[in-house]
């Protein structure tokens, strides 16, 4: 891996107790939830990682510990580097500190993660759903949420599905 990235990863290992892995030229650093805001601030101020490109999550159900990984991808414009931070989140403790103080884009992106996965961010100024309707129940991108697939109508089952479909009368 790149020399600059190697030094940054070493500092993160000392300060935040992070582990890392590499794949196809990318570096993924695993950080715990309580150290993530400090790591982001450190990377933004000391190493000029000024752009937070991605803030999303992955669900690893039925594995409970950890169930989610929250992913932060940082880009440094001046040095042309990229770094990915991953935070494991357990199923029985779905709370994380918010990164809104470090990057303003985290405001909407964390609302999206809450809406789609149910992970709550403490200290977020506006904890509402963003993509689904306000009274929607459930978190769609979790693996135990069904796709909502409707059975397609072929010629052999056309009439029986037609009777069940909720057409509007007028």
């Amino acid at each position: 891996m790149d020399n600059t990235i190697e030094k940054i990863v070493q500092v993160l290992q000392e300060k935040a107790g992070a582990t890392f892995e590499e794949f196809r030229g990318e570096v993924h650093v695993f950080v715990n939830a309580d150290k993530i805001v400090d790591s982001l601030t450190f990377l933004r101020d000391e190493h000029a990682f000024s752009l937070l490109s991605v803030l999303t999550a992955v669900d690893y159900w039925p594995q409970e510990n950890p169930r989610f990984h929250v992913i932060y991808q940082l880009t440094s414009l001046t040095q042309n580097l990229s770094l990915q931070l991953r935070v494991p989140v357990n199923a029985n403790q779905l709370k994380m500190p918010t990164a809104t103080g470090v990057f303003e884009v985290a405001n909407w992106r964390e609302r999206e993660v809450y809406d789609m996965f149910g992970i709550e961010f403490e200290g977020h100024p506006d904890p509402r759903r963003i993509l689904m309707a306000e009274d929607w129940i459930g978190h769609p991108l979790r693996k135990d949420f069904p796709l909502g697939y409707e059975e397609p109508q072929f010629s052999f089952n056309f009439e029986e599905i037609d009777l069940r479909k909720p057409y509007v009368k007028e």
Partner: peptide, 19 residues
């Protein structure tokens, strides 16, 4: 008819809402 998207988020055919 809902098109390519057969999932929770799209109304499967707008004739469920207006004639």
């Amino acid at each position: 008819c809902g098109g390519v998207f057969n999932n929770y988020a799209i109304v499967q055919g707008v004739d469920e809402v207006v004639p």
